[in-house]
Amino acid sequence: MPQDLPPPTDVAIETDALIIGAGPCGLFAVFELGLLDIKAHVVDILGKSGGQCAELYPEKPIYDIPALPIVTGQELTDRLLQQIKPFNPTFHLGERIDGLKRQSDGRFAVATDAGKTFLAKVVVIAAGGGSFTPKRPPLEGIEAFEGTSVHYAVRRMEAFKDKHILIVGGGDSALDWTLNLQPLAKSLTLLHRRDDFRGAPHSVEQMRQLVASGKMRLMIGQVGGLHGTGAELEAVTVKTKDGDERIACNAMLPFFGLTMKLGPIADWGLNLEENLIPVDTERFETSTPGIFAIGDINTYPGKLKLILSGFHEAALMSQAAQKIVYPGKKVLFQYTTSSSSLQKKLGVK
């Protein structure tokens, strides 16, 4: 387990359960844990809930959710958010979970890349395919330039002042940063593989005006190679229909969408099988007691990567988590249809 946790914030956030991932399984885990009086905080690297349902296929219909003959990824997310509302979970969106350390009192200290620290009695990994991270173009030697000359996001615009900037891509990120950075840049080139853009038409129009007035350059082609010394990028070879062209560039921003990577969870000392986390099928617990894994990220004999399987896993995981959060408590299994105490928790009684 990594020892290099970021400095703790003034006050650690104490919670019964920390859920990593706000996709359908993470959201439903809030519900199942909530019925058992287990309070949860939810962290997700995306700026919104819903995970893949919201990020990859918000408009696509899903046909295998029990009792919902047809539902889109976004509707499913919205309905789950409505369903878990009585349990009032706290969301920490746009943050990535980094280090995890078990404390002497048995709780887990979990840090985020935003500098927050959680103290949780149980940790539920519901991270799906992993955390969404920007795609790295498979260009030779690109790693050496990352962080100094190659950036997948803009943290401080000032850092791009007077640079020779190359932005690659044809979506809103590429267009928005083209428009925002052009006034600061010494020179700016937007490179896209075709003269057709996915981004908002208004942004495309503004970009074309800048090109027409000679304030920036638009190239149709693809990146062929990077050239520089050490971590400093100096030029980029651009492959176009008319041949290769080498352009001067000391800041490159590639926008090729997101991919999913297991990320820092891989360093937590859990047993892994090909980037999946093996669990038992009674508790859905990982090789570390108190850390559970549900949904697409886990594996066990017969595993099916279905949302409905993740819902089932959330229910059983919650029973096991209850024994950790409330040790020694007598557990009475109850139905939401008839239990007045469950109905009270749901706010319907």
Binding site: K135, P137, P138, G169, G170, G171, H192, R193, R194, D196, R198, Q222, F256, G257
Partner: peptide, 11 residues
Amino acid sequence: EEDMLDFAFDV
């Protein structure tokens, strides 16, 4: 599909 090909390499 054409939009998604923007995310591929060496198209």
